[in-house]
Nucleic acid binder design. Structure first.
Lengths: 117, 117
DNA sequence: CCCTCTCAGTTACGAATTGTAACCATCATA
DNA sequence: TATGATGGTTACAATTCGTAACTGAGAGGG
């Protein structure tokens, strides 16, 4: 709540991107538009938060909600131009992660060559 | 929590960068090493959280804690090579924010026109 | 010896955010 | 009328955050 000394717009951007799940939501929409239930599965976010985040991101002009009145109703979320403009940010995060983070698997799946038991 | 299908390393990177304050902490260390009290002031973070975050970031190999036993003791935090490698990410966030976020002052004006279209 | 000052944190605790699971509304078909 | 799919809401417990007060080490003053 204190006055920020850094660039206010940078802080605003970071505030949005740092909101939990937002970066993953945006990343998953970079490829193609997605439906609600697809996103909850691929991202691993709950309905409640996905709904909340999408509303916020729509309000921020980053995602668009497209309703197709088929049956059952199909609703697809996609990025606006402002949202797609975040692609370079995501790309740099990806590059960094590939260069600096270990491949580490989350265990419990293949523990073949590990002598530890 | 379900394990998502996106790239695990990307998700790990995003998890770290999305932790509240982390991006601002890293950004503020990109210039030069900083002392604890300087950071709380420039970032606007509380002692408690700064302390917590710096410990986590140190553990992640992103920041280093340097103790100078002067009087009173001086402790400076700086980025490791892994931490400095995040500079391009920060730069892209900054570029995006400058292109897409209004110059906003305290929440009064909402109806700015988009800069580039 | 006791008090005070600075820096660098810790601790305590109420407030806000998140995760989990159950529930709701609409449309369509059986 | 019942059931199933989609796209959410609601309720509530668990986690995290923000605020403010406190601790500890070392130097110096009285």
């Amino acid at each position: 709540m204190v006055q920020p000394e850094l660039c206010p717009r940078f802080e605003q951007a970071v505030g949005m991107l740092s909101r939990r799940w937002n970066a993953l939501i945006i990343f998953s929409l970079l490829g193609e538009s997605q439906r609600f239930c697809t996103m909850t599965e691929s991202i691993g976010i709950s309905n409640r938060l996905l709904s909340e985040r999408l509303k916020e991101l729509e309000k921020d002009g980053i995602v668009t909600r497209n309703v197709y009145p088929e049956t059952p109703v199909r609703i697809e979320y996609s990025l606006t131009e402002k949202g797609r403009a975040l692609a370079p940010v995501m790309l740099e995060i990806q590059k960094w992660s590939e260069e600096w983070l270990p491949v580490q698997d989350t265990a419990a799946e293949d523990e073949q060559e590990s002598p530890v038991r």
